[in-house]
Every structure is written in C-alpha cells, then in structure tokens.
C-alpha cells in the first residue's frame, strides 16, 4: 500500500477551480517532484495536504488513515511535515529552540511539572535538547545553535527549516521550493542533503521546485500540474518529452 494516496482532490476559490481531480500515490521513501508553471496550484496542493485548506472534494489517505480536512496540528501528528516557499522560521527564537518547537509532540511532560521544574521536566528537556542538537549536527548547524534564527544566512535558514520539519518525525516531508534563491553550489549541496535525509530518516519527500535540472536529477517520479490539473506524471524521461509539458512551459499549441 502506498504511503500517501490522494484521490480526486479538488478545491474551489470563489468560482475558480484552483485544483481539480488531483491524484497522487507516493511510496515509502520515494522522492517525488511536483512541478508546473506559476499559479498552477502547487502550493495550494501543499496547503490541502497539510490541512491549511480544506479540500472541497476528494480524499487524502496517509498510511491507511484518512486525513482529509483534519486540522494542521493533527496532520502534523499523523506524519506530514513541510517547509515554506518563503522561509517561515521563528525568527526571534534561537536555532535550537526552533527545532525544539518541532519536537513539541515527540516529548511529553505536563505543564505543571514545567512550572514546578520537577525532575521529569529536566529529564525530558535534556532529551529534547539532545535530539535537537543531533538534528542540527546533521545539517551542520550545531555551531549556530544559540544564535537567533534570523541571524543565519539564507542557505542555513533553509536547512534549519528542513531540520525543524524533520523534528516532527514525519513519514512524508513536503518541501516548497527548497532551492529557491540558491546558487548552483548551494543547490548541489541541497540535493545531497535531500538524498541524505531520505536515506537516513526513511521519509518520503514531495517537493515543489522551479529548477528543472534539479528536479529531473533528484526525483524518481514527477507530476506536472497546470491550471490546477495534472498534465503529466511519470519519471523524468517521460515528463521531459511530454508534449503538453513542453507546451505548458514553452507556450505553443
């Protein structure tokens, strides 16, 4: 059974079918690309998968559980995490605390033991710090752990967002334009990081990206949307040669 199964997903804004009959199957540990021209509905699909928007039609099944229309925090618990097109870190908090927010549901202690600073509080906080630090190490951010997130350079902020998303222990990680604004070196490094994350954590990854060569090289399967509907689906080779994809990107008949 597929990890994520999306069937005939649709959403209407006013009279506009922003996304229509979107279906997708992602296997465990798969690297999947979601591409399409600007305004095609890619981020809207992410927003439906994470519960920010409630779809008007269709269903989303994650690991056998129907999560359609659930609240974002429930979907996060169910195992979908994401990053954002324009970075949305908690800027006033430290790098370490950002990751610890991601661990919110992984470690539990009562509010009362936090107020009274009981032994269980110290024990659990130590566990959280350890987990967060080991995530930061993976992304080479351990030296900046106590800096404010807003003081990190752009590339590292992107990495921190991925680290924070992974802290929620997801089965499926959604990356919204992870390579946006990166130079070729950073992009190459990012591709390595994404491979590493997939292998290390065994998560499936669905990513939106405009950098075609990046997607074509990285992703095992690609789905192309335009005007809210799927126009092509398959491996890089298939998608690259699809006449509708070429038309959508280059214009023409």
């Amino acid at each position: 059974m597929a990890l994520l199964e999306v069937n005939h997903l649709g959403i209407v804004f006013g009279g506009l079918h922003a996304v229509d009959k979107f279906s997708l199957k992602i296997e465990k540990g798969q690297l999947y690309g979601l591409i399409g021209p600007n305004g095609a509905g890619k981020t809207t699909i992410f927003n439906m998968l994470t519960g920010v928007y409630k779809p008007n039609e269709g269903e989303i099944i994650l690991d056998g559980m129907n999560i359609t229309g659930m609240h974002p925090e429930k979907i996060s618990k169910a195992g979908i995490a994401r990053t954002f097109q324009n970075i949305r870190l908690f800027n006033d908090m430290t790098v370490l605390d950002n990751v610890k927010v991601g661990l919110h549901n992984q470690v539990r202690y009562s509010t009362l033991s936090g107020i009274l600073r009981l032994p269980s509080y110290h024990e659990k906080e130590n566990i959280m710090r350890g987990k967060a630090m080991s995530l930061l190490k993976i992304f080479g951010l351990e030296d900046e752990a106590y800096q404010k997130a807003s003081n990190l350079p752009y590339g590292k902020q992107r990495k921190l967002e991925i680290a924070r998303a992974l802290a929620t222990n997801p089965k499926l990680l959604l990356l919204d334009e992870p390579a946006a604004g990166m130079n070729p070196n950073e992009t190459a490094e990012l591709a390595e990081t994404i491979h590493f994350v997939r292998n290390q954590f065994g998560v499936a990854i669905l990513l939106i990206e405009h950098d075609m060569s990046f997607v074509m090289e990285l992703c095992e399967k690609i789905v192309v949307v335009d005007y809210g509907s799927i126009i092509a689906q398959g491996d890089a080779q298939t998608v690259r040669n699809d006449p509708r994809v070429i038309a959508a990107y280059l214009g023409g008949e």
Binding site: V52, D97, V101
Partner: peptide, 21 residues
C-alpha cells in the same frame, strides 16, 4: 519549557506553529 516555546512560536507565526503540531 516546551509549552513556553509553543507560546513564543504561536506569537510569531500561528500558521507555522500549527504545522509543527
């Protein structure tokens, strides 16, 4: 504390905080 951090996170960005669970 964890709950305190959650409060700080919500005050900065409700949407992102919610997506972190």
């Amino acid at each position: 504390t964890k709950v305190g951090h959650a409060m700080l996170a919500v005050s900065e960005d409700k949407g992102a905080a919610q997506l972190m669970g």
